[in-house]
Design a binder for these strands. Structure first.
Length: 586
RNA sequence: GCGCCCGUAGCUCAGUAGGAUAGAGCACCAGAUUCCUAAUCUGGGGGUCAGAGGUUCGAAUCCUCUCGGGCGCGCCA
């Protein structure tokens, strides 16, 4: 509908230019927006005001010229000048009601475009290191990324959902050593745990797993493990130094095979847990991309070579640096360390190059807000590789702060005192968690009220929306109990009977859905969909209270059933995109 | 110190490719069910869009400064 009117405007404009009434400069794309109140019709354009200066005419005069040249349309009742020069479009009743027909006909596809292979993007999100269970901070990135990916897909993009598994870094070594030390404890050794190790209880669980498999084969005495190591931070030393040496000691004592056993068991165990956790949260990925494979395949070397060929690398202090400062970053960055190992940043560059080589139009990254320093350096890398930095898009998700009984829930990852995503799901349920995480703009800090998310009351927006869906289902169950059936054809023939104010508002709301999807996709803003669903549910509940659906008159009964069935379909479609269930009964 | 983000009703937030009288939920007050789920609905009060300048027909939205809050500035990941 919106596109139809934009086309009408365009026709009128071209006509005026052709006739020489308006000059060539006036050939611009007309903008159309929804009106705020139906007093102003359905759609309004500010085109006349935008053109006023170029045309050298007062806006209202231009508006009149355009209106006079608008081609006739079966859907537009009339257009009129309003205020300083708006052109308001009023629709015919038929045009308003066709949306019901469209929805019943298109079902799950209503408002969604088929995937266009020319617009293929990757959305990378979560990508938490497999060093422990996901916590509530990851939850928002997961909910946002998953919803965004679904919305982009609904808007016609072909979408790859990717999780970058950092299974190759130093943090993984620290994890493996943490598990080994806990394993030694389980074997009966008494030893101190490094400041920098992973403290959580889950480490014991993995250690137990390893021990069940291989027994005490890798038990060593406390002295053998720690003698000769530099002091840890709490012993007056440097904790990084301490743990690095501890890693080397582990490799010595365990041998390559033994070390690998701890390393791989740890990673696999945690990764499997993360996958289950996300699946339980309704978050699925198309591709779990391993950093290790990236390295083994030579992709990192390939990317570094590309930077070298483009003249962006230099050597200093034994390391290889990327001259990022010449490409908009604050400072230069190391890609190959003095010890010969590539940095994490080098992997990032390689992964980005890999995405480009796989032909994606855009690589979208969902990062926590604390990673905003990465934007400049990744863009610099893109430019350095000779790629278009605009094909790289980084979206930052601000932190979520949990509140319980009105008080902030304190958390600290380091000490292992954090609430896991799993605990959150168990406490408030997956549906409420998914909704609360995306109900606010991603660039806004989120206050997550646990008590509210849990409450089964009128204050909880999730239940409000789901209840609207369940209520509609209930109406159809009652219809069955009355031994009646819903006749869609009769309803369709009676669309002109939808004249109650509540019905008109509902029609308006339903017809907005495709525009909401388009906007939410374009602005990367799933919260717009969340707000829309609330608004649609509000209109439905108001309608429910004002009109009886199951009336004797079969025309009125069936047309109202058509209408609420359309509402049910749109609610279900929208909830699906947000990863929230649409219950039949509550 | 430098850089990025944010500041809208008592609270939590929408609204930013400039548009008409700045919206919603919660909270508060007053009401609604012989009828499809009251997890619902109807009505009401409530604003210096942090502040000050500027750009223009028009600014919550764009520019500059000030104040307030968050985050980032490792051969860490």
């Amino acid at each position: 509908m919106k596109e139809h009117i934009e086309e009408l405007l365009n026709q009128a404009l071209l006509h005026l230019i052709r006739d020489g009434v308006l000059n060539e400069d006036c050939d611009i794309e007309p903008q159309l927006e929804r009106t705020r109140t139906s007093e102003h019709g359905e759609f309004a354009s500010n085109i006349a005001m935008v053109l006023a200066k170029r045309a050298g005419m007062p806006p209202r005069e231009i508006a009149q010229l355009i209106i006079d040249k608008l081609p006739p349309s079966r859907q537009v009742k009339h257009a009129e000048i309003a205020g300083p020069g708006f052109i308001n479009f009023y629709l015919n009743h038929v045009a308003l009601t066709t949306v019901v027909k469209d929805i019943l006909y298109q079902g799950d596809n209503y408002g969604h475009r088929p995937p266009n292979p020319d617009h293929e993007v990757t959305v990378e999100f979560v990508s938490a290191n497999p060093t422990g269970p996901l916590h509530v901070g990851h939850g928002r990135g997961a909910a946002y990324g998953a919803s965004l990916a679904s919305i982009l897909a609904a808007a016609g993009y072909k979408v790859q959902r990717e999780y970058y598994v950092n299974d190759n870094g130093r943090q993984m070594d620290i994890l493996a050593v943490s598990v080994w030390l806990r394993y030694l404890e389980l074997c009966g050794e008494q030893l101190r745990f490094p400041d920098n190790g992973y403290q959580g209880d889950y480490i014991y669980n993995i250690a137990r797993e390893v021990r069940n498999e291989i027994g005490d084969k890798f038990r060593f005495k406390e002295n053998d493990v720690f003698d000769g190591l530099p002091p840890d931070e709490s012993q007056g030393g440097d904790r990084e130094n301490h743990i690095d040496e501890l890693i080397s000691r582990a490799e010595e004592l365990l041998g390559h095979e033994g070390y690998l056993a701890f390393f791989e068991t740890s990673v696999n165990s945690i990764l499997t847990d993360i996958q289950k956790d996300l699946a339980g949260f309704g978050v699925e990925f198309d591709h779990w991309f391993s950093e290790k494979e990236l390295e083994d395949s030579g992709a990192i070397a390939h990317a570094i070579e590309r930077l070298e060929d483009n003249g962006h690398l230099y050597k200093k202090d034994g390391a290889t640096w990327f001259r990022a400062s010449a490409l908009g970053d604050e400072k230069d960055r190391v890609v190959i360390r003095e010890n010969g190992r590539t940095t994490y940043f080098a992997s990032d560059i390689a992964y980005f190059l890999n995405k480009m080589e796989r032909g994606f139009e855009k690589a979208i990254y969902v990062f926590g807000a604390d990673h905003h320093g990465y934007i400049a350096r990744l863009r610099a890398a893109a430019t350095g590789l000779g790629e278009d930095p605009d094909r790289l898009e980084i979206l930052l998700v601000q932190f979520a702060v949990l509140y319980r009984a009105g008080k902030k829930v304190q958390m600290s990852t380091r000490s292992g005192e954090f609430i896991t995503l799993r605990e959150l799901r168990e406490e408030v349920g997956s549906d409420a968690a998914r909704f609360f995480y995306v109900m606010r703009s991603h660039e806004q800090h989120l206050d997550f009220d646990l008590d509210l998310a849990k409450s089964r009351s009128n204050e909880n927006p999730v239940y409000y929306i789901q209840y609207a869906h369940a209520r509609i289902c209930s109406v159809f169950r009652n219809l069955e109990q009355m031994n009646e059936t819903h006749n869609e054809a009769i309803g369709e023939a009676a669309l002109k009977l939808l004249t109650e104010p509540n019905e008109t508002r509902l029609l308006r709301e339903l017809s907005r859905y495709p525009e909401v999807i388009e906007s939410a996709a374009r602005l990367r803003a799933p919260h717009q969909l969340a707000h829309y669903l609330q608004a649609l549910a509000t209109e439905f509940h108001a309608y429910y209270n004002s009109q009886q659906f199951l009336v004797d008159d079969e025309n009125i009964r069936n047309v109202r059933l058509n209408l609420i069935l359309a509402v049910k379909i749109v609610l279900a479609n929208g909830l699906e995109l947000l990863g929230i269930s649409a219950p039949e009964a509550m």
